[in-house]
Nucleic acid binder design. Structure first.
Length: 248
DNA sequence: GCGACAG
DNA sequence: ATCTTGTCGC
């Protein structure tokens, strides 16, 4: 039985566990931070909890994709969580949630806008994916704690981020062939990878969210994008959240 | 100080 | 994110 002084791995009284609960509270609606400063401080406290570790790709049979779409007319937004099965990435389950943004769009604080709705959609899923793919960044973030990290810690599952346009850092253009990549560097450290998923087509940016490493993330994204620039989970999630919004 | 800035 | 036509290329 676990007691407060039993020591060892994370218990409910642990600092790490407290932070994880703070994050879940924020993400699930006990209210966003009151100020930009509070939000940034929360990210700084949580960033050290991100873990990078190899992911056994041979054991990956279910992959989830997450994305959000905004309504042109009103202030609604729709989040989608989709699950695809290996090896051909057929969609096997989808869940969506419609809500309103509770935090303004501030570069770097993106997650406080989208994570609540995304986690609401995730809660409607029955499957247990082996790894999750977010539309956005993870460690490639000013405080090394982007959306993919928020989701990763909230779920305590392997998560990686795929961005379409550069946010922070610098990367040399990868060679033209699909599979070529270059380091995305910021402040003297490698925070992600600039990866070419199609011959001669604009690259994507891959970064670690939680419980994966860059090599695993890169290889997985490549496998998830056999035909289009963006990985299938992200494309499907994008398709579903838009459809949900259109479906009044 | 100024510009840049995921979705 | 969203507002937006046609067009070049595989």
């Amino acid at each position: 039985m676990r007691t407060p002084d039993s020591g060892g791995s994370a218990g409910v009284g642990d600092p790490a566990d407290r932070l994880a609960r703070d994050l879940a509270d924020v993400a699930l609606g006990s209210g966003p931070p009151a100020t930009v400063e509070d939000a940034q401080a929360l990210q700084e406290r949580l960033a050290p909890l991100v873990r990078q570790e190899p992911l056994d790709l041979a054991g990956v049979s279910l992959v989830a994709g997450l994305d959000v779409a905004y309504s042109p007319g009103d202030d609604r937004l729709a989040a989608a969580a989709v699950v695809l099965a290996a090896p051909d990435w057929t969609v096997v389950e989808t869940a969506t949630a419609v809500s309103r943004p509770r935090f303004p769009y501030v570069p770097g604080l993106f997650a406080f806008r989208e994570a609540p709705a995304l986690l609401e959609a995730v809660a409607g899923l029955r499957a247990v994916p082996d790894v999750w793919v977010c539309d956005g960044f993870g460690l490639a973030h000013p405080r090394r704690f982007g959306l993919a990290c928020h989701i990763g810690l909230a779920l305590d599952r392997p998560v990686l981020g795929v961005g379409k346009t550069p946010f922070i850092g610098r990367a040399e253009p990868p060679a033209a062939p699909r599979g070529s990549w270059s380091d995305l560097e910021d402040g003297g450290e490698v925070v992600g990878r600039c990866l070419r998923t199609r011959d001669g087509v604009k690259p994507v940016y891959v970064s670690v969210g939680h419980r994966v490493d860059l090599d695993s993330a890169t290889e997985l994204v490549l496998r998830l994008a056999p035909r289009y620039r963006l990985p299938e989970p992200v494309r499907e999630a994008d398709r579903h959240c838009r459809a949900r919004l259109a479906a009044v």
